[in-house]
Design a protein around this nucleic acid. Sequence first.
DNA 1: TGGGTTATTATGGGATTACATGGTATATAA
DNA 2: TTATATACCATGTAATCCCATAATAACCCA
Lengths: 146, 146
Amino acid sequence: MFISTYENKLDKKGRVSVPASFRSYLSSLGYNSVVCYPSFTNSSIEFCPQSRIEKLSDSIDSLSPFEENRDTFATSILADSFQLNFDSDGRVVLPKKLLDHSGIKETVFFVGQGKTFQMWEPQKFSKFREEARKKAKTLRSNLKWS
Amino acid sequence: MFISTYENKLDKKGRVSVPASFRSYLSSLGYNSVVCYPSFTNSSIEFCPQSRIEKLSDSIDSLSPFEENRDTFATSILADSFQLNFDSDGRVVLPKKLLDHSGIKETVFFVGQGKTFQMWEPQKFSKFREEARKKAKTLRSNLKWS
DNA sequence: TGGGTTATTATGGGATTACATGGTATATAA
DNA sequence: TTATATACCATGTAATCCCATAATAACCCA
């Protein structure tokens, strides 16, 4: 599971350390890499294990070839995805496209989301977090949890 | 089950011993760690077995990947959670964020809650307990007991 | 019941390791 | 060349391990 938030730094080569706990979860799934793509709904970068994107690809594939949404999904996710490999010290290099999308400059916020995680520019995240807190207060009762 | 209350000390490295009975319950579930997060309603820190938070993660995951509330839930809960591992003597290190939230300085109050437990700053807990007693007095008659 | 013994637990500190982060050196591609 | 990617090495800090001691609880036996 990806939980917690971490704050790491981009060096001048564009590398960031992925938090050790995130890496060890990925490697427990058998991966030495992550897949990522720009979020549709906000300025974060979404990260997930390869298996998840495969599942998503399958569900797109099961849509009718004439389904209008098919190309939309395929284009907006799969085409904009990257596979990032870890270097020997557990770092990845972020593609410029994603840096632009996210607004990340020096500092990266890693945000655990369970089966996925995100990278955020710190200020943008703190705004988002505030909103999330407010909404969650009223919505929390809707979510089932024993 | 987590029952009873205990009082232990934070050392200068920020470590506390988790009561042996709590640890042995966790290890009977197969865990050598706990998950915790700041309480939504008071200044305590909530602790639960990893399985409980995984359930939550699953129910978030069952929402559509494009569901708007998805990120809201994940961010407001999973992002603020921590997985704490026991050292070889059964201690955990409390993150500064949680020390701030709880007001814990030297002494930690452990409060068993059945499937979960809490950590409290002692004075805050005794205030809370007082309030709870008063409320219970007026609510007692509402509780059905066949 | 009491007295002494053993286990278990809590706590402190030094030593060791892991991690994030910076740098250098070498290879690849445009 | 210039930029981009990969491997390797160095270092300070923080987390973790390991051992020593203190405090507490559990036990046994006279």
